[in-house]
Design a binder for these strands. Structure first.
Lengths: 146, 146
DNA sequence: TAATGGTGTAAAATTTAAAATTACAGGAGG
DNA sequence: CCTCCTGTAATTTTAAATTTTACACCATTA
């Protein structure tokens, strides 16, 4: 498993909503076209972000808007919203070591020491980057393209 | 994708080889039983570690031994040996954003800024932990179990 | 007030990736 | 020369992720 491409789709959507959410109705169909991802997948992602208080979706008529300042939206938060236990899925351990072997018996506990460190580091790393940073990268690149 | 369970299998094997490689013939069958993983998968992992100079396997008759000090074997090195581009696979981006949308056009470049940071952090984190650390965790746990 | 365009989910089908299995050639040592 | 082991390739199986299909429900508007 990897940090699901759902995460990059979510970021894509959030940039889109940030840029266009005020001026036009950003629907799952529109986001689906922009990201190249199925509308249902988009709706699931949007739904998770909504539950997390990052965006709001107009009832009935549709359209998403940001309701949280971009500097409070970290990549960690996005991943967590979409897939609550992404971090434990990210670094997996073989499931069936032999209970008859002293190493097999203990390998899970042994690896937990190190893997927990790695997971913590990674969380820190993901918390260090916000949507604000990414939007600013986007504007920078857009500028350069002109 | 995630950090493959192959990595944890590899660590398991290396601990096993460290502990028993001198006193008995550690074959892929034995490792297969201890890890609960198919012998061919084990042989592939062992083969990668061999190419990386971490272990050596007796020709014809079989049996693996460590040929590298455990403090020089980082988790990063193990992952890299087993799957050379694991790091780029770990954090993926949706493959087909629309080229007709300014965000779709640039999303890959935009995310590269942030994702590269995350990848570098993760590599650092994985380089910080060596087989020596893990073996010492193993001995610690083994002691406690008595 | 019925038609339109949108959301939210569930369930099923498809696709893709990971792992296991099967198969076999080739070396070392008894 | 028989047995045990490695190294790899090819195939099959399994499991996970995505997409597709389906449909109930809400607002707006013609």
């Amino acid at each position: 498993m990897h940090i699901s491409t759902k995460c990059s789709v979510a970021i894509h959507c959030l940039i889109f909503i940030y840029e266009y959410g005020e001026s036009q109705k950003v629907t799952s169909k529109l986001l689906s076209l922009s990201t190249g991802t199925n509308p249902v997948t988009i709706r699931n992602i949007i739904s998770s972000l909504k539950k997390d208080g990052v965006i709001s979706v107009k009832f009935g008529t549709g359209g998403a808007t940001l309701i949280c300042p971009p500097n409070e939206i970290t990549i960690y938060r996005i991943c967590k919203a979409i897939e609550p236990d992404f971090i434990s899925k990210l670094i997996g351990v073989h499931p069936l070591p032999s209970p008859l072997c002293p190493i097999g018996t203990n390998i899970h506990n042994v690896l937990d020491f190190s893997y927990q460190k790695i997971r913590n580091d990674l969380c820190g790393s993901l918390k260090n980057i916000t949507l604000e940073d990414i939007i600013s990268d986007y504007h920078y690149i857009q500028q350069k393209m002109k």
